[in-house]
């Protein structure tokens, strides 16, 4: 299943306000990944299922092979925004 070496992030930032970038990172981190890079490295370059209306992530496969499904609307609550790490490579 593994497609390559997991890249090491160079830096981490946190945001204080919600944005689509935060929402994207939140969805990956709920499923146990740092972000899209790690997901691609672990699961291979599969196309990630996204909602057609806004492009939010719809489905992710966790490292143990179980599936997480996400809603059409924003899921990241305000109280968790500052905990979401945005990695840059």
């Amino acid at each position: 299943m593994s497609a390559g070496a997991v890249p090491e992030p160079k830096s981490v930032t946190r945001h204080s306000k919600w944005s689509e970038e935060v929402e994207e990172a939140y969805r990956f981190q709920v499923a146990g990944y740092k972000g899209a890079e790690e997901y691609k490295a672990v699961k291979g370059p599969e196309v990630i299922d996204r909602w057609p209306n806004n492009g939010y992530i719809k489905k992710l496969v966790r490292k143990d092979g179980y599936f997480y499904y996400y809603n059409k609307e924003r899921e990241c609550p305000d109280k968790d925004v500052h905990q979401i790490k945005i990695y840059s490579y």
């Binding site: 709920v30 179980y66 997480y68 499904y69």
Partner: peptide, 18 residues
């Protein structure tokens, strides 16, 4: 479905695709 014991207790882990 699988039971989760993490802090984010608002999701179900599905063992197969819905």
């Amino acid at each position: 479905i699988a039971l989760e014991h993490d802090t984010k207790g608002n999701k179900i882990a599905w063992k197969v695709e819905i």
